[in-house]
Nucleic acid binder design. Sequence first.
DNA 1: TATTGTTATACTCTATAACTATA
DNA 2: TATAGTTATAGAGTATAACAATA
Lengths: 162, 162
Amino acid sequence: MSAQQEQARTSLPIEFQSKPHEALMSVWWTATLLRKVSSKFFHEFHTSDAQFNILVLLKDSTTPLTQNDLSRKLLVDKSNITGLLDRLQKQDLIQRIPVEGDRRSYHIALTKNGVKFIARLDKLYTEKVHQIMSNLSERECSDLIRLMRKMRNSLAADHESS
Amino acid sequence: MSAQQEQARTSLPIEFQSKPHEALMSVWWTATLLRKVSSKFFHEFHTSDAQFNILVLLKDSTTPLTQNDLSRKLLVDKSNITGLLDRLQKQDLIQRIPVEGDRRSYHIALTKNGVKFIARLDKLYTEKVHQIMSNLSERECSDLIRLMRKMRNSLAADHESS
DNA sequence: TATTGTTATACTCTATAACTATA
DNA sequence: TATAGTTATAGAGTATAACAATA
């Protein structure tokens, strides 16, 4: 691969007048690539990022989660949670368990199958993540975490003001 | 809003064992919010991020771009570029101009309408961007740009190895 | 033979509103 | 009245493969 192509691969498609604008577009563009790489990764396991997020959340939660909990935590509308869970249920990865004392709700639990699936997938995913982040130092990762939190502060305020 | 809710708004939905993992998920999660805020913004103008990207690219390009150019620059498959341009053409924002000397290709140009539209929209968008980034300093923006470029280096390598 | 753009297809995710059963 | 979850709908983006016209 030529140097020019190498340059083109990671450079942004346009140029910017200001640092803040360039910074935001850097995040955008990086996330675009991240989504492409992720969706290819998940596709190989016949799943998706949205489904993976649910499974990981279930795996790591110490308390049972309802559909409403998933909706709020993942910022996915409850109507769309229904569909996502339908697909996960059809794959025998999760189950809906009626909640005693509130007949409107379900606790969402991983099936035996789901536990095995997410354990295996999360391991491979974590390896992938570390590979992607391998050229950032611990310090750089900490900086990045801090900067992203700053951006989310404005974004969340904006998102909720609507 | 209580401190706890304030915390919940910008915190990630799960916790992480390693800084690199947390850093990557910070980017992912920030991008998720960014996409929600963006798509709401663009929706008000009856357009989308994908369409906006094309229009901005056309606006800022000094040389005429073919559909193939747009496809490569934006990492959108040419078959999907066709559909995006169809929608933009129906809104009278772009036009396809036959290329002299290569009857397979079109140069994509903004219409008069398109020029006006993107000028106005880009101005408002830029204001929005600066508002979102307002709590990051110039220095922090520069750091962020550098860190994002590092991530894209791995991501692009991974993306192209497939 | 390779490339540009189109068509067809299938799948996800997203957003919204109206609905039900229950609290 | 408010809440949990479902259904219905519409739209967008994405990926893939097959195709026609042209180079």
